[in-house]
């Protein structure tokens, strides 16, 4: 393991905050001098970062009563958390089911050439269409009274199907690559050491393709997450996508930026603390480049 060294990555957040501050300040100032910068007036109101933080505080600590006392208290079932839970729940269900199916289909396309040939145009089609393009039709299909009676609105089959499409196909392709790059020499060596049948799968095919499986998971998760937030903005209840829409509809610009920050933050946390770590575990011997 290399020693921990200073990474310039640490400079990026202060840099972004600085640009944000200057931009927000400039836009506010130009708004005051309306005569000079007429076209900016009332159009660009970029809130400062601390305003966004404060709006987060307002969400987490709602007013205790509506009598105007102004007393705020922390509440577990605040709107912000609810929206986050719902989004994370959808992500876990959609991504999870996509992963399980992608493992099966990716292994199958990897091992059987006819099935790989059959699947190729289908994967290519779905990968070339942005997943969000499917959302309107999914909303139409899954908001029919029949499906609505089946599922709670939090669940939203429309959103789930969009996440599934977004995560499934990249994972199939990566897992298939993982199977295809298994070295014939490793299989030969294992056989001559006595590995038979399922042992070959358990002790050779699986570990040999693990780096690709984990890379596929990382890709699938982030594709699914992006598609999720986009899909949530197309008329479903709850979710971070809805939080942003609410901010827009009620003119609460800080809320929009809060939503954006949360989307990026959650995605970053999963990348940095889960997927990158799993990948680093294999990078020593593997050459995945996805």
């Amino acid at each position: 393991m290399a020693k921990r060294r200073f990474s310039y990555a640490w400079l990026s957040i202060p840099a972004v905050l600085l640009v944000w501050f200057l931009l927000a300040w400039f836009l506010a100032w130009s708004g005051e001098w309306g005569e000079l910068f007429d076209r900016f007036e009332n159009q660009l109101r970029l809130p400062q970062s601390w305003t966004v933080v404060y709006s987060g505080y307002e969400e987490l600590f709602p007013l205790v009563d509506l009598s105007g006392s102004g007393i705020r208290a922390f509440q577990w079932d605040n709107e912000l958390f609810k929206n986050m839970y719902v989004s994370l729940f959808r992500e876990v269900v959609g991504f999870g089911s996509a992963l399980i199916l992608a493992l099966i289909v990716g292994a199958a396309t990897g091992f059987f050439k006819p099935f790989r040939q059959f699947m190729y145009p289908i994967t290519a089609l779905f990968q070339s269409v942005p997943p969000i393009a499917w959302a309107p039709i999914m909303v139409l299909v899954f908001t029919s009274p029949f499906y609505q009676s089946l599922t709670a609105s939090v669940f939203s089959l429309a959103v789930l199907s969009v996440i599934f499409i977004a995560g499934f196909f990249p994972m199939v392709v990566t897992i298939q690559e993982g199977v295809l790059q298994i070295q014939g020499s490793d299989v030969k060596a294992a056989r001559v050491l006595g590995a038979k049948g399922w042992q070959l799968y358990r002790y050779v095919y699986f570990p040999a393709s693990l780096p690709f499986i984990t890379t596929g998971m990382r890709l699938g998760f982030s594709y699914a997450w992006r598609a999720l937030v986009a899909a949530e903005m197309l008329g479903v209840e709850f979710g971070i996508g809805q939080l942003i829409l609410t901010g827009d509809a009620t003119g609460k610009t800080p809320l929009i930026l809060l939503g954006v920050t949360i989307i990026g933050g959650i995605s970053f946390l999963f990348e940095a603390f889960i997927f990158k770590r799993i990948e680093a575990h294999y990078s020593e011997w593997s050459h995945t480049n996805a």
């Binding site: 020499s185 490793d186 030969k188 060596a189 294992a190 050779v204 570990p207 593997s286």
Partner: peptide
């Protein structure tokens, strides 16, 4: 084998 086929993992 001619080239060592150790399991890299």
């Amino acid at each position: 084998f001619q080239t060592s086929a150790l399991f890299p993992w």
